[in-house]
Design a protein around this nucleic acid. Structure first.
Lengths: 152, 152
DNA sequence: TTCATATAGTATGGAACTCATAAGATATGG
DNA sequence: CCATATCTTATGAGTTCCATACTATATGAA
């Protein structure tokens, strides 16, 4: 059981380390695009969770609504997103990522994607499934923890 | 082979997601400690990579040296770190995390640590080893990618 | 309907932050 | 001994974040 515990702690330490490394990668990519870290984060969320309203994005990113206005202003000015006012509720705005520049980001992440592909090539399909499931569950666990303590 | 590729992409997507969730967790913990995200990051690096000079920390965190002065001022004022001027080179300063408050941080991360323990309890020792190795390798891959493109 | 209240997004102003530059202090090499 | 390099920090300009207030729209009750 001692080995179990030790490996568990190693996993948590590795996660902390990985988080920092990925944050640095983002910082660097953001630098090349002249984007703040937070701006790139928002863009990432928007790219994956589809079009969102500013309020929804603010909740997901843990930001003040007024802060988001500034972020969206920057992203809009630089041509990354568009504000659509076409919904039923005319107060609301939906933020949409413009498709053109998606490739630009992809290109900058390419070295890391390639490195991951090399790494993954050494695993069997069963092992890949195990890893994918673990990562998904970890993210969900984190989300649950966040959700729980936000409600207090 | 199609399944391989798909699982690989799921792993990368899950990593992106996990990064954001962990960043949010950090943001929240930092909020309770009245610390900026970046300050907590620096504290994390210091806690793990031992005492460092400001220059070394700036390199590891991808920050401007002058920016670090401000960060260290905040951390010192709030009693998180100490600046030691005892080294052989009297220009240099080594930053040391004060031990007292380590527990305070640990307590705030406890919900997430507990959630991870629950998650890990469902895996065999062999599986845990596999996961730990994968995470370590991923962090190393990221580090390599960063190191490479910094040199350009 | 009409009015009160709630919600979505944004403008404004103050405080704080980041960063480039420069300065001060110390080390190193010729 | 002097020139140069390195480590850290002070300074100032420009920017950002956020609390508050405001406009516009929606919702619900009388």
């Amino acid at each position: 059981m001692r080995h179990r515990r030790r490996t568990g702690n190693e996993i948590k330490a590795a996660l902390r380390d990985l988080r920092i490394q990925l944050a640095l990668l983002n910082h660097q990519v953001g630098g090349e695009l002249a984007l703040k870290d937070i701006d790139l984060d928002c863009l990432d969320v928007l790219a994956r969770s589809g079009p969102l309203t500013p309020s929804a994005l603010a909740r997901q990113a843990g930001l003040h609504p007024a802060t988001l206005t500034g972020i969206l202003d920057r992203l809009e000015r630089a041509g990354w997103i568009a504000r659509d006012r076409a919904g039923a509720d005319r107060r609301s705005v939906t933020i949409r990522v413009l498709p053109d520049r998606g490739m630009e980001v992809f290109r900058l992440y390419q070295p890391m994607i390639g490195a991951m592909d090399d790494l993954l090539a050494g695993y069997s399909e069963a092992e890949l499934d195990l890893i994918a499931t673990f990562l998904r569950r970890s993210a969900e666990a984190c989300e649950r923890v966040l959700g729980r303590s936000v409600q207090e």
